[in-house]
Write a protein that binds this DNA or RNA. Structure first.
Lengths: 103, 103
DNA sequence: TTTAGTAGTCATATAATTCTGACTTATTGC
DNA sequence: GCAATAAGTCAGAATTATATGACTACTAAA
């Protein structure tokens, strides 16, 4: 799922755009971890097995682009960056909980 | 999204499996049409622009495999086949409506 | 038994996504 | 200035998903 595709806006199915927000191999997992605590890149890389920097980096940017996560730069000893859920991101939580309930 | 991937069952995110049910370029659209009325292959092909027999055929089979659609063979003049929502499929409707509400 | 309509399959080609490993940038402390 | 750490980017390879066009199977009516 490219950012281009995320934005091409030719959807005829109203829910499709929102399903796409979490489409891709790792975004649901990234989102779930973001619900639990603010994300940091290196920690994400350690927690998500089988993925890689490139893919996670792109996924984080796309989640940011669609307004589900926001990036916060923390100028500490070694540079730190946090990804936090936005309000829009938080609004998805109950829907995902409902989805879990259906399994 | 292959059937293999749909079934490999290595999810750590509880909602991911269900998000995958409707993953792929055409499944959300197929599902939406199935909510409106029973699906027929040739009609689907006419209604969904930009896709093709092969892809729709695979998507229908996957939706059937995960238990969202059921296939009904109707032995009429020319052979007819209908795809209908299962109970599981119907249970997804309110969740998708909620998703629409978030856009 | 030929023909027409529906619902596909198959082999192959193209496109999109994900992975790998080397390289880059920014910050702080020595 | 130099090393260490975090957070990436980049080019290219591998994998997965989607598209194209030719072909097949089944049914019923003529």
């Amino acid at each position: 799922m490219t950012t281009k595709n995320l934005r091409d806006g030719k959807e005829t199915c109203p829910a499709q755009g929102l399903l796409k927000l979490l489409s891709g191999k790792w975004k649901p997992e990234i989102f779930r971890l973001a619900v639990e605590a603010p994300l940091r890149f290196s920690s994400l890389l350690r927690q998500i097995h089988g993925s890689n920097k490139q893919t996670l980096s792109v996924a984080l940017r796309e989640l940011e682009d669609v307004g589900l996560l926001e990036k916060v730069v923390i100028k500490q000893k070694p540079l730190h960056i946090e990804y936090n859920l936005t309000e829009k991101g938080k609004s998805l939580i109950p829907v995902l909980k409902q989805l879990e309930g259906l399994s």
